[in-house]
């Protein structure tokens, strides 16, 4: 499709592109052999309490000052007593097509083929921080004690290894977080994705993020 920037904006290219994307099934395994873990943040249920953030910090021993997970609260929409807020989960999207892994020269950033989880092996890391720069979601940070990149790994080495749900999921008082195998059509997350309108962040970049979201009714997302 030849489509200059000017034309793209001015003409109906956006429409054509939009229609094209809509035909791609949301749940589609690309390279996974077994499970493909994914998460759903139901923004219509989230109350912005940040219990998930606290739980993640505690379980994964994340020092103060950095975080694997942030709940971003929008500006108030409306005036008291009718004002409301939107909440946006900022954490690793466990991309099916992860640029952070693509740019890593040492293999320290990897995607676990068994589970689809994107993780970091600090022992292999050479500290170049390419991955930090390459992540379009800006969720990687340098762990102040390990001095290597860190981010959400779906609690792969903590709760998941012990057969428990990720810490953030079990801490949520409103069940706004759902975790499970998106390759299993019977799993709760697959059911939700199949029956409710979900969206994902920055899909046009081709990262194929595995963090799904149900939009709340308040409209605007934080930029």
């Amino acid at each position: 499709m030849s489509c200059s920037r000017r034309k793209f904006i001015a003409s109906g290219c956006a429409l054509v592109l939009g229609t094209g994307l809509a035909n791609i099934p949301l749940v589609q395994s690309m390279t996974i052999n077994g499970k493909r873990y994914a998460m759903l943040h139901d923004e219509s249920k989230c109350i912005g309490c940040t219990a998930c953030m606290d739980a993640c910090r505690e379980t994964n021993l994340v020092p103060e000052g950095v975080s694997r997970l942030e709940i971003i609260r929008s500006e108030p929409q409306g005036e008291y007593p009718d004002a409301n807020y939107s909440f946006f989960r900022k954490s690793c999207q466990h991309c099916d097509n992860p640029p952070c892994v693509e740019v890593c020269p040492s293999g320290a950033s990897f995607r676990d083929e068994e589970t689809g989880i994107v993780d970091v092996n600090p022992d292999k890391c050479v500290g170049c921080q390419y991955c930090v720069a390459a992540c379009p979601y800006q969720v990687r940070f340098i762990h102040p004690e390990k001095n290597t990149p860190d981010k959400c790994n779906f609690c792969r080495d903590t709760n998941l290894a012990q057969g428990k749900l990720p810490a953030c999921v079990s801490a949520c008082p409103t069940q706004a977080l759902i975790f499970g195998d998106a390759n299993d059509p019977a799993s709760a997350i697959s059911q939700q994705i199949a029956t409710k309108p979900t969206y994902r962040n920055k899909v046009p970049l081709g990262t194929d993020p595995q963090l799904f979201r149900i939009a709340d009714r308040n409209g605007d997302l934080p930029s």
């Binding site: 109350i47 609260r73 108030p76 008291y80 007593p81 009718d82 004002a83 409301n84 807020y85």
Partner: peptide
């Protein structure tokens, strides 16, 4: 003022 003191005043007002 309530909003400045804590944002949670907003969603619980009614």
């Amino acid at each position: 003022e309530l909003r400045t003191a804590h944002w949670t005043h907003d969603p619980h007002a009614n």
